[in-house]
């Protein structure tokens, strides 16, 4: 009997050791990734890459940095009215049945591979509509990929507005629009912004949907909406690492490093917003 218990305890201990080892393993992989990107990236960063454009496989990253910022900024401009507007409609106006349908279609959009979005826009806009590789096509691709993240966060945030606050506002005689703008909207804003920032983090790191929509350019991006390709950082990581030259490898590492920094900063701000939001919700309750 006692040996039986001892055996069970030993078995339990054995499996838990394996479980803990898998966590340690995962963290080691993460360490390897970070170490790799940060050590090589920091070594590859020179001040002049921020002011020079790529020349073939060398030069700087100014065009890619500006292009990434421009593509993501326009994507945010495109996704905010649609994603947040749809969430407002679903939480404030929609009949039950339609609410379910919109939420379902967003769920479906979550599962669409980004390359499918990219190829769809390539065929529809770059080819069929004749826009060529362009800023708008690239930003639209990013906006579609961000949409489910932005929508879902906004939907959750507007659904979580406490009912008693809304009722208090209405009871005080506020008009519906005033109640929405002064009570519901401020309450839902941090959660919505968090979703938007998570979307920005995703968009910063996307490559596949941009290759055949934004194209690639060695020059600084123009503000032309169509017929003008745009460079971006992820393209540099993907292509320059396969060139046989040290200079191009350096640029790929520098680009990867800058991407990681950008994504970490947006994710950190997003997390901080969640904390802020949570603490405010607690103080209300």
């Amino acid at each position: 009997m006692v040996s039986h218990v001892k055996r069970n305890v030993a078995i339990s201990r054995f499996w838990w050791v394996l479980c803990i080892a898998s966590l340690v393993g995962a963290l080691l992989v993460l360490l390897s990734l970070f170490g790799f990107v940060f050590v090589r990236g920091i070594a590859a960063i020179r001040p002049d890459i921020f002011v020079t454009v790529t020349q073939g496989i060398a030069g700087g990253l100014a065009n890619a940095i500006a292009g990434t910022m421009l593509l993501v900024t326009l994507a945010v401009v495109l996704v905010v009215p649609v994603g947040i507007g749809a969430a407002i409609w679903v939480t404030q106006f929609a009949p039950d049945r339609l609410r379910i349908v919109v939420r379902l279609s967003i769920d479906v959009l979550f599962g669409v591979p980004s390359i499918v979005v990219g190829y769809f826009l390539y065929v529809a806009l770059v080819e069929t509509a004749g826009w060529g590789f362009s800023l708008v096509a690239g930003s639209l691709a990013l906006a579609i990929i961000m949409l489910p993240y932005v929508y879902r966060a906004a939907d959750l945030a507007f659904s979580a507005v406490p009912r008693d606050l809304v009722e208090a506002s209405v009871a005080l005689g506020a008009r519906p629009l005033t109640t929405f703008l002064r009570v519901a909207f401020p309450w839902a804003l941090p959660g919505t912004l968090t979703g938007l920032l998570i979307g920005v983090g995703i968009a910063l790191g996307e490559t596949a949907p941009l290759i055949y929509t934004a194209g690639w350019s060695n020059y600084m991006p123009t503000l032309a909406p169509t017929h003008s390709p745009v460079g971006y950082l992820t393209y540099v990581v993907w292509t320059f690492i396969n060139e046989p030259f040290k200079e191009s490898h350096q640029l790929a590492y520098a680009a990867a490093f800058l991407l990681m920094i950008g994504i970490f900063v947006t994710n950190f701000v997003a997390r901080a917003a969640v904390e802020y939001w949570a603490s405010r919700t607690r103080s209300h309750a």
């Binding site: 990734l33 790799f36 996307e206 596949a208 990867a256 991407l259």
Partner: peptide, 12 residues
């Protein structure tokens, strides 16, 4: 880890 872009995993 979930936020690291695909292309960086590819580089590694």
């Amino acid at each position: 880890m979930a936020g690291i872009p695909s292309v960086v995993y590819g580089l590694w």
